[in-house]
């Protein structure tokens, strides 16, 4: 199997949405991380942040692997978004509801990954719900409706394997129908 035929699912979303944890929750081996200490404003959200990618995989019973890649969250790393999504199977978008404007973040990432989503599919997981109820799941549905997009959206705990599996399950439903 050569590198071109690599099958991969990409996890993206803003800083602190739980991309690294979500990958760790369902992968076979602990993810390779490129996280470094945060400074400035990002420091207030978390201590470390991914600068290149998180990587892990799930081995299938026929020996093939589905690779899981996590992107950096900040827009200054958008060159990695393009690199990592190339030939990907689909996108898992995690949005941190404990952000001042989570719906703006939803718009931003859906727009930034619009081409990739058009080619494949997306599922949205809203994390850290309940810590601050700035937006409810209804609000995410309404925003997607406004955008003319019917995408799967779930409230999840990104550290829970069961919750992340639900996201993947919905993504697979979207990709195979």
């Amino acid at each position: 199997m050569n590198g071109m035929a690599q099958e991969k699912i990409i996890f993206t979303g803003p800083v602190g949405a739980g991309k690294t944890s979500a990958i760790a929750a369902i992968s076979d081996v602990p993810p390779v991380r490129t996280d470094v200490a945060c400074r400035g404003e990002e420091r207030a959200i978390k201590d470390t942040t991914t600068v290149a990618m998180d990587y892990s995989y799930i081995q299938l019973d026929d020996g093939r692997r589905v690779h899981l890649y996590g992107t950096p969250g900040q827009a200054r790393f958008d060159f990695m978004w393009e690199l990592l999504t190339r030939n990907g199977l689909g996108l898992v978008l995690l949005i941190n509801n404990d952000h001042p404007e989570p719906l703006r973040q939803l718009d931003f990432y859906l727009d930034a990954f619009a081409d990739f989503i058009r080619q494949t599919g997306v599922v949205i997981g809203v994390t850290r719900m309940g810590i601050a109820d700035r937006a409810r799941l209804d609000d995410y549905q309404a925003r997607l409706f406004e955008r003319g997009q019917v995408y799967p959206v779930f409230e999840i705990d990104g550290r829970s394997g069961d919750d992340v599996r639900i996201l993947v399950q919905a993504l697979l439903a979207v990709l195979t129908i």
Binding site: E7, L60, R64
Partner: peptide, 9 residues
């Protein structure tokens, strides 16, 4: 591949 992934998970 996706069917196998679903099975695996």
């Amino acid at each position: 591949l996706l069917a196998r992934l679903a099975q695996r998970l």
